[in-house]
Amino acid sequence: MPVRRGHVAPQNTFLDTIIRKFEGQSRKFIIANARVENCAVIYCNDGFCELCGYSRAEVMQRPCTCDFLHGPRTQRRAAAQIAQALLGAEERKVEIAFYRKDGSCFLCLVDVVPVKNEDGAVIMFILNFEVVMEKDMVGSPAHDTNHRGPPTSWLAPGRAKTFRLKLPALLALTARESSVRSGGAGGAGAPGAVVVDVDLTPAAPSSESLALDEVTAMDNHVAGLGPAEERRALVGPGSPPRSAPGQLPSPRAHSLNPDASGSSCSLARTRSRESCASVRRASSADDIEAMRAGVLPPPPRHASTGAMHPLRSGLLNSTSDSDLVRYRTISKIPQITLNFVDLKGDPFLASPTSDREIIAPKIKERTHNVTEKVTQVLSLGADVLPEYKLQAPRIHRWTILHYSPFKAVWDWLILLLVIYTAVFTPYSAAFLLKETEEGPPATECGYACQPLAVVDLIVDIMFIVDILINFRTTYVNANEEVVSHPGRIAVHYFKGWFLIDMVAAIPFDLLI
């Protein structure tokens, strides 16, 4: 008679799926529990143990900040960024110097990925580790590398530091407007667009060049630039800015003055950032001319202004700041037409079709709590990747769950009947059967004279019903998954307890 339990259901295979997918890609990662103190490590794979030199037993239950890997060259700011990422709910990448158990130093890129439950609360953290440099290539500990984003994938490793954006290309926007319009339909740009040429040739750093990471940081200074100062900065030398009595002219307006920039070969870094931020506020060169004239017309309804409409929906549905990093990277690809469009465009503009998908598509409701890094690593669709929660398995109709209350009560009843059979069957065979043979035949009273025979008949009927119930009862397979398919249940029961239950259900007393 089957006594099969499996009270692990309803099970959740999400954690096993993450481990299996990460292991298949030869990654070095740990999984931490966000619900406990210090976000203790609950799993670390073999790749991480080989990377740091510690065994799994030495890593388990330690804080996922990996303070046991810190050393003299470990930056405090990087460690603080990892700790801050564990307090938030967004994906974050941090470069930090770690030390192995043998004392060797290596520069590592740590990717902190939160995993949320159905309520939107962070319950786990996945920390992925990628070695960037070994100890002989690690720089000085005073050099802070965590304020910069990861290198873009479309640049060669040897040319990542030679990417320079020439400031004269930004200063000569109005001069290039006529050349853009003359391109017409034969050019790649839309009317009114501004073409910015980027020099990728390796050259020595000069005062006129600005690194790509500095251009990325310009967006942080746009908020500090007032509207009046932006307007004066875009007017140009024809209309000098008016300053109040006793007030000095704005240095932001002076930063885009061609006369002032041409007199000296070098520009201050602050002026460069502010000038680029001011130019980015204009949607095209037409807006710059309109600002000089004193009238700013409404933005025209053409394809170039609607190019950012799908980007707005993608940004609203993005799951991490990696989408913004990807957008900034692609927006700086050289030799393309940049349409400086305000994100607050007309909502009635139709979304044009684009061959290049900048932001990841909208994630469906079932995966809105899973970050983009987890979705990318697992390579699963929205119909396959579940949320991290207890999910009731989908069972067929008329199927009994093996952990249901009805099955528990039924098993206790069958257990009592088995005990009765084990006690009274030998007793009936030894004593009652002998008395029946010696006594007179009682054929007239039937079952009324033999109450134990009636009980034995009921017990046999219950055993037959138990066999039928076992054909529709779920079970737990070797992978700790609840199986509810009727065919698989029948095959599993035939290979197991079916023969024993059938022999126990045969009414031998009635056959004798």
Rank of each mutant, 00 (worst) to 15 (best):
A9I: 13
D259A: 07
R281G: 13
P258D: 13
D46E: 13
R4Y: 12
R356D: 07
C64S: 09
L210W: 15
H368W: 07
S320W: 11
A277I: 15
N257M: 15
A160V: 15
P249Y: 06
T162R: 11
S206A: 09
P10Q: 05
I126P: 01
D346K: 07
T367L: 15
L267F: 09
L167Q: 15
S207W: 15
D119E: 10
Q81H: 06
N45S: 14
S320Y: 11
F68A: 01
G120H: 13
E134G: 14
L315S: 15
N38L: 05
K166Q: 06
T371E: 01
S322I: 08
G294H: 14
A285E: 12
P249D: 04
L311F: 08
R176T: 06
G120K: 09
K21N: 08
P352M: 03
A277Q: 06
E357V: 09
S379D: 04
A268L: 11
K362Q: 07
A290L: 03
L225E: 14
L380Q: 04
H302L: 12
A253R: 11
G224Y: 14
A78F: 01
Q84K: 12
D346H: 03
P63A: 13
T74E: 01
R76E: 15
S104V: 07
M133F: 10
P297H: 15
I288R: 11
P249T: 14
Q335Y: 04
D46H: 04
S243H: 15
R181H: 06
I31L: 08
N369V: 07
G306T: 05
P249K: 07
F29M: 01
E58I: 01
E365A: 12
L155D: 14
G120T: 06
G24H: 10
A211Q: 06
I96P: 01
V122T: 12
H368F: 11
A175I: 01
T371N: 03
E230K: 05
K161T: 14
P245L: 11
V370I: 12
R252I: 03
P227E: 06
Y99A: 01
S264N: 04
L86F: 01
T375A: 06
P258C: 10
R20C: 07
D111I: 03
F125E: 01
F68I: 01
A83C: 01
S318N: 12
T353G: 12
L378D: 01
S209I: 13
T162D: 15
S320R: 08
H143G: 13
I333G: 14
H143E: 14
R164T: 06
S284L: 13
A172H: 06
G103K: 15
V115T: 05
S379I: 03
H309K: 05
Q61Y: 03
S55M: 04
S318L: 12
E177V: 03
I336H: 14
V8I: 07
S284T: 13
E357G: 05
V115S: 03
K344G: 14
C49G: 04
N220E: 12
Y99N: 01
D199Y: 01
E118S: 08
E134S: 11
D102G: 05
A253H: 14
P310A: 07
I330F: 12
V180D: 11
T375I: 09
A223S: 07
I363T: 09
T17M: 07
P151Y: 13
G120A: 12
M60D: 01
S206C: 15
H143P: 14
S239T: 12
F29K: 01
V196K: 04
R312D: 14
R281K: 15
S26K: 14
H309L: 07
L324Y: 13
L324K: 13
I30M: 06
D16A: 15
S278W: 08
S178M: 06
D342W: 01
P300M: 14
C66V: 14
P151D: 14
V279A: 14
L349A: 09
G306D: 10
R273T: 13
F348Y: 11
G224S: 14
S379W: 08
E230I: 09
E357F: 13
R242G: 15
R35Y: 12
L267R: 06
K364H: 15
H70L: 03
F29S: 01
L170P: 15
R176G: 05
V3L: 13
A9D: 15
L127M: 11
V370Y: 11
A32N: 01
S255H: 09
R77E: 13
I288Y: 15
L165K: 06
E230D: 06
T152E: 05
R181S: 08
A303F: 14
G226V: 08
G103V: 01
A293L: 09
F14D: 12
A85G: 05
G120W: 04
L343Q: 13
K93T: 12
E130Q: 15
A253Q: 08
V122G: 06
A253W: 07
V196C: 05
L267P: 07
K166S: 15
G24D: 13
H302S: 05
G53H: 01
A203N: 15
D323H: 14
S140W: 14
C105E: 14
A211G: 06
G314T: 09
Q84N: 06
S263T: 06
L109P: 01
V113A: 06
R356H: 14
P347T: 14
M218Q: 13
Q247C: 10
I359W: 01
L171C: 12
W154M: 15
P205A: 15
D287P: 14
G120C: 07
L385H: 09
G314P: 07
A80Y: 06
A228T: 13
C265A: 15
S272H: 11
G158M: 12
I333S: 11
D286A: 07
K101C: 01
K135G: 10
T145F: 04
R164E: 06
H302E: 08
F48P: 01
A382S: 04
N38F: 04
K101L: 01
C108D: 01
S261E: 14
K93P: 06
H147N: 14
R5N: 10
V194F: 12
E214C: 09
L127S: 01
R148K: 12
I288M: 10
S243K: 03
N220C: 08
K373P: 03
G294A: 10
V374G: 01
D67W: 01
I336K: 14
F48L: 01
L200R: 12
V279G: 11
A228I: 07
V3I: 08
T74G: 01
R301K: 08
M291A: 15
S182L: 05
E95W: 01
L155G: 10
H70F: 13
L87W: 13
L86S: 01
S304D: 09
L267Q: 06
L15M: 08
R5E: 14
C64D: 01
S179G: 09
Q247D: 15
L51F: 05
S379Y: 06
A223L: 15
S278R: 09
V341C: 13
V194H: 05
V194W: 01
L200C: 13
L338C: 15
T152C: 06
S182I: 06
I31F: 03
L267T: 12
A303M: 07
E208P: 15
L212F: 06
L378K: 04
A142Q: 15
L311E: 05
A253P: 14
H221W: 10
A282L: 12
G189Y: 01
V36L: 15
Y327H: 06
E91R: 14
V113E: 10
L315N: 15
A97Y: 15
S283R: 05
G103W: 01
V341Q: 05
A78C: 12
A350L: 07
D199H: 01
F29L: 01
T174Q: 14
Q335K: 14
K28D: 05
P386C: 02
G381F: 04
G381I: 03
Q75Y: 04
S182W: 05
S304F: 08
R27K: 11
A185Y: 09
A83E: 09
I333K: 11
